[in-house]
Computed example of a mutant assay.
Amino acid sequence: MIAEFLNTVDQRSFSRHGQNHAGGERLTSPGGLVDWLGECDLHPAGDELGPEDLTAAVALRTALRQSLSGEFDVATAFADYPLQLVHDDAGGLRIAARSGRPWLDTLVETVVVAVGRGDWNRVKLCAAPDCRWAFHDTSRSGRGRWCDMNICGNRHKTRVYRERHQQAG
């Protein structure tokens, strides 16, 4: 769910096999946010969302993408989202966000749990500057750089190969 949320903004701008890929913004209105939340089963029926909800979603997404880009750490991304320990149904404790927006709390809690488990290190933005698609790195070493080796990785390797041969020639 984290990568899907991060990819509600598509920054890809490359061409492949003669087809131009133009990115876009999925969260352009409260209705767009409702649609995305519905696809993820995060939006309770009957709740209406307004412009302030859209602003909150985009702010969280932007902070998370910036933390993945290394602009600041993930702790800074959560500065505006108070967290606390609460009792869960099984008698244990869990981390809970208290933004007043249950869907936003679920997103924040999902990221916090991923950070705590060490899974956040596997969420990455594609290294291709004309892509920046969020993906979950499933490589054994955890050093994956490309959202798709057959697309972005191949384009990078081809570009480096051509540059190296142009310099040699």
Rank of each mutant, 00 (worst) to 15 (best):
M1Q: 01
I2V: 12
A3K: 10
A3G: 11
F5Y: 09
T8S: 10
V9W: 12
D10T: 05
D10W: 08
S15Q: 06
R16Y: 13
H17D: 13
H17L: 09
N20W: 02
G24L: 07
E25S: 07
S29Y: 10
S29W: 11
G32M: 07
L33R: 11
V34D: 09
D35E: 14
L37C: 04
L37I: 01
G38P: 09
D41P: 06
L42K: 04
P44D: 14
G46T: 01
E48N: 10
G50K: 00
G50N: 03
P51T: 07
D53I: 02
D53R: 02
D53S: 06
L54W: 00
L54D: 00
T55G: 07
T55H: 00
A59L: 08
L60S: 03
L60I: 09
R61W: 13
R61A: 03
A63C: 08
A63M: 04
L68M: 12
S69R: 13
G70I: 10
E71S: 12
D73K: 07
D73C: 02
V74A: 12
V74H: 08
A75S: 07
T76P: 01
A77K: 05
A77M: 02
F78A: 08
F78M: 07
Y81W: 13
P82D: 07
V86H: 00
D88Y: 01
D89T: 07
A90V: 05
G91F: 01
R98W: 02
G100V: 02
L104F: 15
D105W: 08
L107Q: 11
E109I: 00
T110E: 12
T110A: 11
T110G: 13
V115L: 14
R117E: 15
R117I: 12
W120I: 05
N121W: 10
K124T: 10
C126I: 08
A128K: 10
A128R: 08
A128E: 14
W133S: 05
A134T: 09
F135N: 03
T138K: 13
S139A: 06
S141D: 02
S141I: 00
S141Q: 10
G142T: 09
G142K: 05
R145F: 13
W146K: 01
C147G: 07
C147R: 11
C147D: 12
D148A: 15
M149C: 04
M149R: 08
N150T: 15
C152P: 14
G153T: 15
K157A: 15
R159C: 02
R162I: 01
R164P: 13
H165I: 06
H165R: 15
H165L: 12
H165A: 07
Q166F: 10
Q166E: 14
Q167W: 04
A168Y: 06
